[in-house]
Each structure stands twice: as C-alpha cells, then as structure tokens.
C-alpha cells in the first residue's frame, strides 16, 4: 500500500465523516433521539489491531457486514456491542419483549434491518461524495466475538495490514455506542483518493 500523506488522510476522514453523518441521521430518525458521531480516524493497522477500534477481540457484538462493489471494492461494517444492541432494541420495542436474546429471529431481523438502513445511508453518501459507482451486497448479520466478525474484512487486504476508516456514534440518552468501519481493498485506495481529488502526490 502506498504511504499516505496528511491530505490523503484528511480526505479519507471526510468520507468517514460524511458517511457516518448520514447514517447517524437515519439512526436518529429511527430512534427519535439525538446521535453524535466522533471525529473519524484513518489508520493502517496490523490485522490484530483492527478490532481495537470497536473494543476487545472477544467482546460480543452484533455485526452487519456489506461487501462493496463498483468503483471502490471493499468492506463496510456496522458494529454494535451486545449491551448497546439490547438498549437499541428496548428503545424500539414498544410492545412485548425480545427477551434480551440477541440471537432470536426477531432481534436479528430488527438489528439486520437497522444495519442495512445505516450502511445504505453511508454508501449513498460515499457514492454522492465521490461521484463514483458503489454497489452493495445483501447485508449479512451475526452476533459473535468482534474479532471473528471483522476477520472477513481483512481477507482482501495486503500481506498483514489493512487501512480502516473508523467512525463512532454515540446515543447519549440510551448510553449506546456503535461503530462504522470502512475497509477498502488495497486496490481501491488510489481510485478512492483520486475521486476525492487527492490522487496525486
């Protein structure tokens, strides 16, 4: 992977900012509560450190995964730690109870749908922002160790490192944290930077 300068990092941070910003707006509408996003971080990390962005390797999380096609192939994750996922479901469930079981069909379907909406918002803004073609896959959702879920995003990476654009989102009222993690394929970084107007030196 080419070395990234400050201008490249700034441009990629802006992707994380705009993408997660749009997604956060959708989340705020969905939950009827304000959502604040963090300043995005852009890092080239060893595989084992990618998970640090969202917590511990063995922490149980709900992960929604999209394989991105089109001009900038890559991977996008929406990750909610288990306790935050339960809080989100409790806030959405006005009738009955999902029984705190994140593995139940209802919980998984609801969480998958939330992930789907948020990731779509992120990708639409990526496409608008870069004027590029962004194709999405069917969303996949799983509840398991964070490391085991994020692993799929590293399969297309170079030797033993990958570039990640991480943005956190916080719903203070529910004490909920969630994370957007964009992991472009190595071959997508240059086209992405070019589309952002910082492709050259």
């Amino acid at each position: 992977m080419q070395p990234l300068g400050d201008r490249h990092l700034d441009a990629l941070r802006e992707v994380g900012n705009i993408g997660a910003g749009h997604a956060a707006t959708s989340l705020a509408l969905l939950l009827q509560r304000p959502v604040r996003i963090t300043v995005p971080t852009v890092q080239v990390l060893d595989f084992d450190h990618v998970v640090d962005a969202v917590g511990g390797a063995e922490d149980v999380v709900v992960g929604t995964y999209f394989r991105i096609g089109g001009d900038y192939p890559g991977n996008l994750f929406f990750i909610i730690p288990a306790c935050s996922a339960r809080a989100v479901l409790r806030a959405m469930w006005t009738e009955g109870d999902f029984g705190d079981d994140l593995q139940s069909e209802m919980a998984l379907s609801a969480l998958g749908e939330i992930g789907n909406i948020l990731i779509s918002a992120y990708l639409i803004s990526l496409s608008d922002f870069t004027h590029g073609k962004v194709e999405t896959s069917v969303p996949a959702v799983a509840v398991d160790m964070a490391q085991a879920i994020l692993e799929v995003g590293m399969l297309t990476a170079d030797a033993d490192q990958c570039l990640i654009v991480h943005t956190g989102a916080h719903i203070e009222e529910l004490d909920v944290w969630c994370h957007f993690l964009l992991v472009p394929d190595p071959d997508s970084v240059l086209p992405l930077l070019t589309a952002l107007g910082v492709g050259g030196e």
Binding site: Y65, S137, A140, A142, I149, V152
Partner: peptide, 16 residues
C-alpha cells in the same frame, strides 16, 4: 473454519 454470516449469497469471501 466457520461461516460467520448466514445468507452468504454470491460472496465467496463469506464461504472461505
């Protein structure tokens, strides 16, 4: 060697 995500569809990465 698990398949972490159900409904892998055409995505071979998910079936590795």
């Amino acid at each position: 060697g698990a398949q972490m995500f159900a409904f892998a569809g055409k995505n071979d990465l998910l079936k590795i």
